[in-house]
Write a protein that binds this DNA or RNA. Structure first.
Lengths: 205, 205
DNA sequence: GCCTTATCGCAAGTCAGCTTGCGATGGAGT
DNA sequence: ACTCCATCGCAAGCTGACTTGCGATAAGGC
């Protein structure tokens, strides 16, 4: 199981990659986002600083890659039969994860456009698309089930749910509990349902 | 018009403050957020770098102060008689401003928790509170007018509106047009209205 | 008009992210 | 077993944010 070559004087390729990634997630959890210096990461991984920069380019990209897959394992795939309940569970878990040091680091790195270069932007874009897409399954199932109108735009609806959550976390830095998430899901789902053409008569002007 | 003392060898107090603030907003508009170095700001303001740091402490705080009042002048105070229309107008203007280099810089700086110290956090908190409070007037008027239920939580409703907008801007960096804002307002207001006790029967489980 | 003091200019320096050139080495292919 | 090349370690350096001690000066009080 463990590779036959335990620790050659100089590790190579995938070995370096994994060591750095692990060191990054560990430091992120213990030291927080600003406490995690790449010099420390390199030292803990038993790798030279230069190797880190050559492979990932910037601190943001490294942290984003180190943490992005972690979100997936942290989020549930609820299937309670109720779209409302599924979404509440999913986004409550998201909010809870966002309240952890690791989660906060992820959210901040993923939102922070500190580097404007195209690659980083694509990384962030793909990241959010992937996450939203995962929750998108819940919404699409809700549509098929008849809980939501056929015209419902999953992406739009998910933005309406994820946006306020992130704004809250980034703004106040406080965990957002299940009750709050439930209120949000209440609001958004009720809004999506009444967006049906038939009830479309209440807007002024 | 121009102050009686054109340019003493060393400007002091308010004069320095204003010069730096102006230089900051100008550079922000032309050079963008990352292109705006405090060394350049100081040079353009005809002031020494040290003075900037002594007065504002960090780059973030300076930029936040330089731009925050600008948002106020950029945002309308609509009063069309329709709460829906008022909110659409207000948040469309917000989205439009967020699409400008200056607006993007503001949003990023205000959201970016790159410095965790208490003062900066309070600055950001107060900033968002002030902005939301301004829109809060529209919501409260809507409640008094009977457009919205009495139980409506203005802050919660505004987060539901502002959150998705910010997520979109920060995520894709694309302007969010009036049509999109209108959809959002549709969704959120419809949700807020149907949150009335009387129609409270549609959630699964 | 003088004197005090907060404010400013200036120089020197720290720190962390990031870059570059070069020499060494390990892994893959023959 | 040998060669080749991508990858790594290392040293040196750059940049920009941020700090500090000291001397100079403008602005307000007497």
């Amino acid at each position: 199981m463990t590779p036959p070559r335990p620790t050659p004087s100089h590790r190579r390729g995938a070995a370096v990659r994994q060591a750095v990634l692990e060191a990054t997630t560990e430091l992120l959890a213990t030291e927080g986002l600003e406490g995690t210096r790449i010099a420390d990461i390199a030292a803990r991984a038993g790798v030279h600083e230069t190797s880190v920069y050559r492979r990932w380019g910037t601190r943001s990209k490294l942290i984003l890659e180190a943490l992005s897959h972690r979100l997936d394992s942290e989020l549930p795939r609820p299937d309670t039969g109720s779209t409302h309940e599924d979404l509440t569970t999913f986004f409550t878990a998201l909010a809870a994860f966002l309240a952890t040091p690791t989660g906060r680091a992820l959210a901040r790195i993923a939102l922070d456009p500190q580097d404007d270069d195209t690659q980083a932007a694509q990384l962030r874009g793909r990241f959010w698309t992937d996450r939203l897409d995962r929750a998108g399954h819940l919404v699409r199932r809700g549509i098929e089930r008849g809980d939501l109108p056929r015209e419902t735009d999953p992406e739009f609806l998910l933005e309406a749910l994820a946006g306020p959550l992130h704004l809250r976390v980034l703004q106040r830095g406080q965990p957002t509990g299940r009750d709050h998430v439930r209120r949000l899901v209440d609001l958004v789902l009720a809004g999506a349902r009444s967006a049906l053409p038939e009830n479309h008569e209440c807007h002024g002007t």
